[in-house]
Computed example of a mutant assay.
Amino acid sequence: MALLKNLSLLLLSLLTLLGLGLVQPSYGQSTYQRFLREHVDSTGKGGTDLYCNTMMERRGMTRPRCKQFNTFIHDNIGTINNICNAPNIRCKNGNNNCHAGVVRVTDCRLTARSPQNCRYGARASSRRVVIACEGNPLVPVHLDS
């Protein structure tokens, strides 16, 4: 009986926190965490083939298959999150939850692959990116371009 009471209180507390917006549902957090893992490297300068080869492997984008193309953003997370405050624009999939901003990036493009090795070429630049944002507060969940 005490266990049931404790579980009920725990559930009530969680629902209260969700209602206050202090806890985001896990689907939003996992999508945001995936965006961070795949696209954000605030401390790195990037720009070299070695950078791309290292980061693509370190961030898990060479298994089970080599990812063809990936962009790493080198601005701080506050700057990246702030793109979500820019005016809405249409995403490639037709949704209207995308936002654009200019950031420093390294684009990594697959140049060669073997059964155990993915090789990437790098291109560093400052350019416009389009990011899909979701949640409350809005956070980036997908790099659209």
Rank of each mutant, 00 (worst) to 15 (best):
P87T: 05
G78D: 14
P115W: 05
N93H: 04
L143G: 06
V105M: 01
G60Y: 10
I131Y: 08
L11T: 12
D144P: 02
T48N: 06
V23M: 00
D49N: 13
G28Q: 11
R119E: 14
G60C: 01
Q29I: 12
P115L: 06
R119C: 08
C108K: 06
R37L: 09
T43D: 13
M56A: 07
T16V: 14
Q33H: 05
G46Y: 09
T62M: 10
R127W: 06
D107Q: 13
L7R: 08
Q68S: 15
S8V: 09
V105S: 03
R59A: 04
N6K: 14
L14E: 11
M61V: 04
P137G: 07
L18E: 02
R90I: 06
C84E: 04
C66P: 05
G78I: 09
E57D: 14
A112L: 12
E57R: 15
V23S: 01
A86E: 07
L20M: 11
C91K: 02
D144V: 11
R59W: 07
L11R: 14
L3M: 10
R37N: 07
Q116H: 15
C133T: 02
R58A: 14
S42V: 07
R59E: 00
N76E: 12
T106Q: 08
T43F: 14
E134N: 03
R34E: 03
V103H: 09
H99K: 06
R37D: 10
